[in-house]
């Protein structure tokens, strides 16, 4: 095996080439639409570029052809923030609870797995029918939020398990030995130590919710989220405006990811400083 650093055999270069191709495969198409979103006013959905302009971006916000994009963006951001907060808090405590066996822990775990596994649209159907049977109106901030949580919470829990794998329960006991109350232990020891992991859980909470489509369709009621608006655009918009909204929403995602990673890196660095 050419695993040693000293000599890199043919296999290293073959595998490196494969890996590079995979990365190109992942990012290439996205880069194409980022470029095409700056298409000139007369340009179409494919190359060649007929000049460059910001026309399609301004078109997004000025034209009414594209549905309620601004409203969708507001609601998606709001849902993302709510899902993020609730996911981080619920998964932190649930993760702590799962450190010991408790009655029903197996059932709860499998319920979470089931939620990841069932087709999203179907869960959306179940939630919407459940609300309707109870006589509640479907609201993006209630049934929609619930649908999003059914997606973000199980993911968050799995990540929390991974994060807690590296948590030594003796830290809690050391704090207790120093006389700390449960609340002090949580605030001064558990949460600060887990903080980088909690940011990762929060990142998942936000982005999974922000981009969620199948569970949203039937649960948000009359007001659409951004992914629903965009999915509608895929069938009836034939201009580069589609790419422009793609660029915008991807930019938001990248900004959130960068923020999260920046925050984690900052905390790690502060802890490692001499």
């Amino acid at each position: 095996m050419s695993a040693s650093n000293a000599k890199r055999g043919v296999s290293f270069y073959l595998l490196a080439a494969f890996f590079t191709l995979f990365v190109v495969f992942l990012y290439g198409p996205m880069l194409i639409i980022f470029v095409l979103s700056f298409q000139g006013e007369t340009g179409g959905l494919t190359f060649p570029m007929r000049g460059t302009s910001l026309h399609w971006f301004s078109d997004l916000f000025s034209s009414s052809r594209y549905g309620d994009l601004a409203g969708g963006f507001r609601r998606s951001t709001g849902l993302g923030l709510m899902s993020m907060t609730i996911t981080a808090v619920c998964c932190l405590f649930a993760g702590l609870a799962f450190r010991s066996r408790f009655w029903g822990s197996g059932t709860l775990f499998y319920l979470c797995i089931v939620s990841l596994v069932v087709p999203g649209i179907l869960l959306g159907l179940g939630i919407s029918q459940f609300f309707q049977i109870l006589g509640f109106r479907l609201q993006w901030w209630l049934s929609g939020l619930g649908a999003h949580l059914s997606w973000t919470l199980p993911f968050g829990l799995l990540i929390m398990f991974a994060v807690l794998n590296r948590y030594d329960n003796a830290w809690d006991e050391a704090a207790r030995d120093a006389g700390a109350t449960p609340r002090q232990i949580l605030g001064w020891v558990t949460v600060p130590i887990l903080f980088p992991g909690l940011i990762a859980v929060a990142l998942f909470g936000f982005t999974l919710s922000y981009d969620e489509l199948p569970r949203s369709i039937l649960t948000v009621g009359g007001k659409n989220t951004l992914p629903i608006e965009i999915s509608n655009m895929t069938t009836n918009v034939t201009t580069p405006a589609l790419y422009a909204i793609g660029t915008v929403t991807s930019f938001v995602s990248f900004a959130v990811i960068a923020l999260a990673f920046g925050l984690i890196a900052f905390i790690q660095k502060r802890r490692a400083r001499a």
């Binding site: 030594d168 003796a170 704090a175 030995d177 006389g179 001064w188 600060p192 130590i193 802890r271």
Partner: peptide, 30 residues
Amino acid sequence: GNRGTALMFQNYALFPHLSLTDNVAFSLKV
């Protein structure tokens, strides 16, 4: 923590996010 005992843990269980000073000062903070 209120019975006049102090326990030294097998793997020490030092708080990874605190400086040595703050580790030692923890019970005083409490």
